[in-house]
Structures are given as structure tokens and as C-alpha cells.
Design a protein around this nucleic acid. Structure first.
Lengths: 162, 162
DNA sequence: TCCATATATGTAGTTAACTACGTAGTTTTA
DNA sequence: TAAAACTACGTAGTTAACTACATATATGGA
């Protein structure tokens, strides 16, 4: 199991992140199935957000979950098809569509609580190590927010040595 | 900048990983451009592997970089178009195509050394924190190799409480 | 008050990975 | 030694995110 990429260090980091994200998403799908639930991991951010905030516009949801708005729209379409959400025009601003969970959606969220608890434990086993993965992600995101990868590269370059 | 997903904990981890991978890949593209190099981050795993191993078949490359072979084939097509690699039939096994870097490819690899060094430093600034991102990824991957997310979920479920 | 600018939503097309399946050589085994 | 099983490569179609652009409504300033 020699693997050049695992040894090429940090340069292949985006490859490694993507691989890991893919694997977890796919296995997440199997877990929902095994509990007999008709739910997909990619829906989690939207549904969880609406569970907490109850009524939000498309762009507000996009901001909450950190996605571009067209991605959010396509998730909302799927959830509408599943009858887990519905939407109505905002009366005070005709441009906005306010999204809410349906009764079916709320029921499903309740049914998913033990599954989420189960997943959380399994994920903790995987991610809680000497270097905690969630904390590492949070710290890296915080750094990027202060100054991006490109900006840091430019600064290093201008500093002379590279 | 309230963000439900950042606070929803580990359940949205695959979303977070993907976001981070995307951001780093895109900024990586800008960095190559800023150095005047016609190179894309997604090509790195293949090119770096061929730089170290010089002649490999399609499936061997796929295994080295941890991708499915069709993904590798489409990367190889792009690299062939860029004239960075070429291939010839293996004489002892007619099924195999042996891939090598061209002279242009080798020259580019040399030209990229300082850029890779620069990127490595910038990435270290981002990822070397209290919880080191690369190490966290490695640890999580090791755990998954022992027993996957699904398998762990099943075991927790069977243990009774969930 | 009306025009310019900004915001909210939507559509179309792209990207970078994947799985499923097909074909052609190679190896094993009955 | 011929059939079965395996391996290598390739194609087609899918997925889950993205950017760029279009349209409709709202708002602020001259």
C-alpha cells in the first residue's frame, strides 16, 4: 500500500480533503438507509438550519450553510419534491421566498434525532484524535478568513526568498 | 456572520471538508497563474507521482494517487493534450499503457519546484495549528481504514443505546 | 419622483470527482 | 488446452458543488 500522495505532504491537501468528504458522504447515505430513512447527507445543512431558524429566505439559507445560492436553490428543489419544505412569498418584499419545514419535514427531523446522535458518536470515534479534525478545520478556516492561500503565497513571494 | 453550520458540529463535516478543498484548489490555480505557469492543482498528484516513479501504468497511477481509474484516465488525457506526458504499450503485457513525463513535462516540474516550495509554506501557515490539519486527516483516514463510518455506526447501534 | 444601483431569485453551463458497464488481453484450472 | 476468472483500460452517465449571466423587485439620491 505504498502511496506517493500520502507522502507528498501538504501539496495534495485539497485532494485528501475531497477524498475524505466523499467517503463520509457516501457512508452517511448508507447509514440513513440502514435506519430506514429517506434522507441524504447533502440535505442536512438546509434541514438543520430550518429546524433551528424556522423561516428564512433562499439567500439567508445559503449564507447560513456557506453555499453559493444556486447550489442552495437546487437543494431546495429536491426538498420540495420530497415535501419536506414549502415556501411562500414574503409579503413585505416580493423578491423573497420564505422557506419553512412542512409537518412531514418536522416529523422527519424528530425521527432523525437518534440517527444524528448515532452518527455523531461514530464521527467522534473517527475525528477525535490527537489532532482533532473538526478543530483543525475550524482553525484552518479561521486562518483563511484572515488571509487567503493566494494572499499568503504572494506575501511569502514578496518577502524575497521565493 | 452567524453560521448555523459552523455550530452544528461534526454532522456537517463532509460539507466543511468539501468547502475547504474547493477553496484551496481555486486559490492554488491563482497561484500557478501568478507565477506564469500553465498548470492546474488537480494535475499535481499525477505529475508528482510520475516525477518520482518515472514509468507507471494507468491503474498503478490511480492506486498511487488514490483515485478511481476513470478519473485518472481523464487527467491523463488532459496532460497528454498539454504534452506533459506520453504513453506506450507495455511489450510484455499488451493490456497496459505505460505513462512517462515528456521532456516538456520534466522541464515544467523543475520550473515548479520554487512554486511548490512557496505553496508549501503558505499551506503550512494555514494548516499548522494546535490541531494540525494534515495530521488530523491522516489520523482520521487511519481510523477509517480500520473500520468505516457505516461499520462504526452499526456497532454503536447494536451496542444497544442507539 | 424617476433613474441608478443594489438585492433576491432563477437558469444554464462547468468542474472534478464518482459508479456501472463493456471489451480485450492474461492467467489459472479442470 | 480450452473455458473460466481476473486484470487493464476505456466510455457513458451521474453527482454535488461551482461561476456567469438574466430578470424582477426594492431603495436611495439628484
Amino acid at each position: 500500500m505504498t502511496n506517493v500522495i500520502d507522502e507528498s505532504g501538504i501539496l495534495a491537501i485539497s485532494t485528501r480533503l475531497q477524498r475524505l468528504a466523499d467517503a463520509l458522504r457516501k457512508e452517511g447515505q448508507l447509514i440513513y438507509q440502514s435506519f430506514g430513512l429517506d434522507f441524504e447527507p447533502k440535505w442536512f445543512p438546509v434541514v438543520y438550519t430550518l429546524h433551528l431558524k424556522s423561516s428564512l429566505s433562499v439567500v439567508e439559507i445559503a449564507n447560513e450553510i456557506g453555499y453559493a445560492h444556486p447550489s442552495t436553490i437546487s437543494l431546495l428543489k429536491e426538498l420540495e419534491k420530497q415535501q419536506l419544505i414549502r415556501s411562500k412569498k414574503d409579503k413585505t418584499d416580493e423578491r423573497k421566498r420564505l422557506i419553512v419545514l412542512t409537518e412531514k419535514g418536522k416529523t422527519l427531523v424528530n425521527a432523525m434525532q437518534p440517527v444524528w446522535e448515532n452518527m455523531q458518536r461514530a464521527l467522534s470515534e473517527i475525528a477525535d484524535n490527537k489532532h482533532n479534525l473538526m478543530k483543525a478545520i475550524e482553525e484552518a478556516e479561521a486562518k483563511l478568513k484572515v488571509s487567503g492561500f493566494f494572499e499568503r503565497s504572494q506575501k511569502i513571494r514578496q518577502s524575497g526568498n521565493l
